[in-house]
Amino acid sequence: MTRTHRILILLATVLALAGVAVGVTLHAAGRAAEKDRPRAGGPAVHPGEVTLDAPGRSVFRNMAWGPHRDEVVSVPATDPTGARTASGVRCLRFHTAAGTGICLQSVRNGLRDDYRAVLLDAHLRELHHYALAGIPTRARVSPDGRAAAWTVFVSGDSYAGTAFSTRTSVLDTRTGELDGDLETYRFLLDGRPHRAADINVWGVTFADARHFYATVATGGRTYLVDGDRTARTLRALHENVECPSLSPDGTRIAYKKRAEGAPADAPWRLYVLDLHTMRETATAERRNVDDQAVWQDAHTLVYSLPGDFGSDLWTVPADGSGHARLLMKAALAPAFAAPAPRP
């Protein structure tokens, strides 16, 4: 083989390899672009200004694939399936009330993910942030915006099993005072102080900045507790209550309850408890609800169920009537207009 032939073969090989490289690059770019485009049937999302105190708007975490996945987005309350306005702020869990927001975020730190809670103003600007000890799972803001709470898993990653541990913190958004672990509060069971190494606290829902409800687990049982930040107490009220959510008028608690005979990996049904009579009402939702429901209004609950994009939001009447309805696809962690603060 002559030197000219060898050169020609070498050039042909280089050109072929270059063609393969270009093809691979274009294919990868195409797949990335495809990922950034909304999936067929998914909601329209576009960037814009989102504020937490805008009247007539609902806010939530967008789950649709694309460049705005995980961002806090806004839609008209009267058109929940309409085009979404994306804020650019990404949250794993989110809640807002009275123009105050709490955003639980993942932050890449080398080869690992760290987590933090970010306190936001009405324009989603960061006011302060706080390191988290584990994986975010719940977040709430009090109706007056003066307190925020969050729960993280510090071991395990599901409420369904028994091998998990949580840490729940409550923040005074005015002073910055942080109660880092509600397990340090005095737990009263049957009116008497109860101390145990296995106590877990999670799922805060606020009546006001001082008073709240939450779940306490100990001895293989769960309890609805009435919490007082000033007295630093947790008082057991009712058994078999998880992830409570207080109604706007403060008279009822929506919650997930472990149903007798349900599968171990799908144990929960959605109930409502009347705090005056302690009477339980099963909602018409018969599927497994692993979420802390929110009240869309005084009569309607909103909660997440698995969907094509990871999570969809559903509604059901709180009084046990009617049936479940799909509210919006590709959405999680909704917040609706907060009721006026109590005097």
Rank of each mutant, 00 (worst) to 15 (best):
A28F: 13
V272W: 09
F206A: 08
Y159A: 01
A32Y: 13
G320D: 07
R116G: 01
L127G: 14
L188S: 06
T315M: 10
T2G: 15
E285N: 08
A133H: 12
L182A: 07
R125G: 14
T168I: 10
R6K: 14
P143F: 10
D113A: 13
R125I: 03
R186E: 14
L104R: 03
R221H: 15
A163K: 11
R138G: 06
Q105R: 15
A207L: 14
A33H: 12
F94C: 09
V75H: 04
G56M: 11
S155E: 14
R232F: 01
G48L: 07
A331V: 09
A64C: 07
R140I: 00
A28M: 13
T78F: 12
A33C: 00
R6D: 08
N200M: 06
G23R: 13
V272D: 05
L189F: 14
M1I: 13
H276L: 07
H211I: 01
V289P: 00
T173Y: 07
E126Y: 01
D70G: 01
C91K: 00
S245T: 08
F309M: 06
P43F: 05
L273V: 05
A330W: 05
Y271V: 00
R167Y: 08
P143V: 10
V170S: 03
G19C: 09
G219V: 08
L132I: 07
D319F: 07
M1C: 13
R146S: 14
T175K: 05
G82I: 05
A160H: 08
L111T: 15
V75M: 10
P43H: 03
D198H: 06
P43C: 08
G110D: 03
H123N: 14
F212G: 01
T215I: 06
V204I: 15
H68V: 02
N109G: 00
T2M: 01
Y255G: 05
T215Q: 02
R221D: 12
D297R: 03
L273H: 04
R258P: 01
T25F: 15
G156L: 07
R57T: 15
T233R: 09
F60D: 00
A254E: 02
V225D: 07
V201S: 00
M328E: 06
K35I: 09
T100N: 05
P334C: 02
Y130A: 03
R112Y: 06
L237V: 12
N240P: 09
Y159T: 01
T315A: 09
R31I: 13
V289H: 02
A77Y: 00
T151D: 10
M328S: 12
R210S: 02
T218E: 04
L124I: 06
T300A: 04
A262W: 06
A298G: 15
K35N: 08
V201D: 00
D198M: 06
S106C: 03
V45N: 00
A217G: 06
A266P: 04
A217C: 01
V45E: 01
L111C: 00
T96V: 14
L104Y: 05
G56H: 10
L234S: 02
D290G: 02
D144P: 11
A163R: 13
T315I: 13
H123M: 03
L178H: 08
L327Q: 03
F94K: 01
V272N: 06
S165F: 09
A282Y: 00
P339D: 07
F206I: 08
L11H: 08
P317L: 12
G180V: 02
G191V: 11
P136C: 11
H27L: 14
L8F: 13
V22T: 14
T137A: 10
W295F: 11
R93P: 02
F206H: 09
V152I: 13
